[in-house]
Structure formats: structure tokens, C-alpha cells
Design a protein around this nucleic acid. Sequence first.
DNA 1: GGGAATGTTCACTA
DNA 2: CTAGTGAACATTCC
Length: 245
Amino acid sequence: MPEGPSILILKEKVQPFKGKTVVEATCNNKTLNVSLLIDKPITDFKSWGKHFLICFPDFTVRIHMMMFGTYRINSHTKKPPRLGLRFSDDTELNFYACQLQLITEPLDDVYDWQADIMSDKWNSKKAIKKMKAEPELMVCDALMDQQIFSGVGNIIKNEALFKTRIHPESLVAALTSKKRNQMINEAVKYAFQFLEQKNAGTLKKNWQAYHKKECPRDHVPFIRKDTGKSHRTSFYCEVCMKLYE
DNA sequence: GGGAATGTTCACTA
DNA sequence: CTAGTGAACATTCC
């Protein structure tokens, strides 16, 4: 479910609920005091990378889908939802297997919108600055760092590195500035392609690296390895992807 | 049944 | 104190 583009799709789908007032709210664990939501209007939906934000007048409910989160709009599954919202016109929103958090601070104090790769406030110069502050970071970890590239997940990481021919264990400081800029631009570009392809149902079909067995360029087996301090799986080709170190 | 997977945080140890 | 490890959560598929 996660990765930034999927959250944008969710945000788009719930637009009809903007302005509706919650008449009933349930939570299948104790992570959110749902009585706070009763009779409160949803003022907006926002997102920051993988965070989905339901805004109310005086607070925000943060939903993180983690690995397995799902949702249903105007329907539900057999299991009680982690967060279930019902409205007076008999419509409902249900979220499952997700992490909930109440945010009472102003969102501008909590989130650096310029770090969200899919936001129109995205600022690549700021990301470069953050990368320069951690020169020993491997690029696989840098891309997955939500404070630098909010919204990037393991799929976007693998596809962007393959397309730009950068070995995932390359060090940030060793990249040429040209290569670094290519990597950043490709991550952003692919995130939007991800969005389009997911909507078209062609996402998996278009993967060139993620979970692939061999390199489509060189037809040699991909290396599949836990990389970096994040220990997330990378799929890469030692023939065409250069290691900068 | 075991293992893996689009993710993150926290407790614990060396 | 810090870096690294393992656990925890939760779901579905093979």
C-alpha cells in the first residue's frame, strides 16, 4: 500500500468527504481517542510522503499505512477497522492495519513540506544540502531517508537507481554532482510515473529492477542483497550500475 | 508451516 | 552515548 504515490491516490479518492461531519468513529485498539472526532467536520485531507492526514478544525489525524495498511471507501471488510468513520449521509471511510497518531501542533511546525518529493513545494536544493550533511551515507539509505526524500520507498529507490545506473551501495559524497542530480530527478520523475502506472494498473508490468531476476540491459542475473543500514533489499546489476566510493 | 514483502519505532546490548 | 540488532505490529501470498 505505501510509498508516496499510493497516498496521493488515496487523497484523490477521499475528496468527496471533505467538509463532511463525523457522526460515528471507531478504533479497534486504543491508539486514538475517537470520541474527539464526533461531530467534527473534516476540513481537509493532506499528505506528506507516506503520511495521510485527515484535518479537523483543531487537530489532525495522521495515518501511516506501514507495510500492510489498506482502506475501504463506502464499504468494509470482515475485520473491524483500525479507524472507521461514518457520516450522516450513510457514507463511510475505513482504514485497516495502519498506525494512527493525533497531531495537535500546527502542521507547518511538524512537517517540512519541501522534503515531500511529490509536493509542489518540493525543493531539491534542500535535499542536496541534507545529503551533503551526511557524506558517508549510501545512496540506498539516502533515498529511503524520509527527512530527505519523503515518499520514496523501496520500489522507487530500486527503479531510480537502475534507471540512473547507480550502484545502491555508492556513497553520497562519491557521486559526481551531475550523477547526484540525475538520481534525485529520476526519483521524483519515477514517483509520478508510479502514480500514473498504478492508476492504469500497469505498475508491476513496468518494473525494470524491483523483484526482477535479470538485468534488462545486460541480461545477467541481478544481485539481490540487503543493503545499507536500512537493510532493505536492493536489486542491481554489477555490469551496468556503477559503484561510486 | 515458514518466509517474504511497498515500513517504522522502540527496547536492548555491546 | 551510540551504533547495531532484534522485536513488534500487521496481511497476504506462495
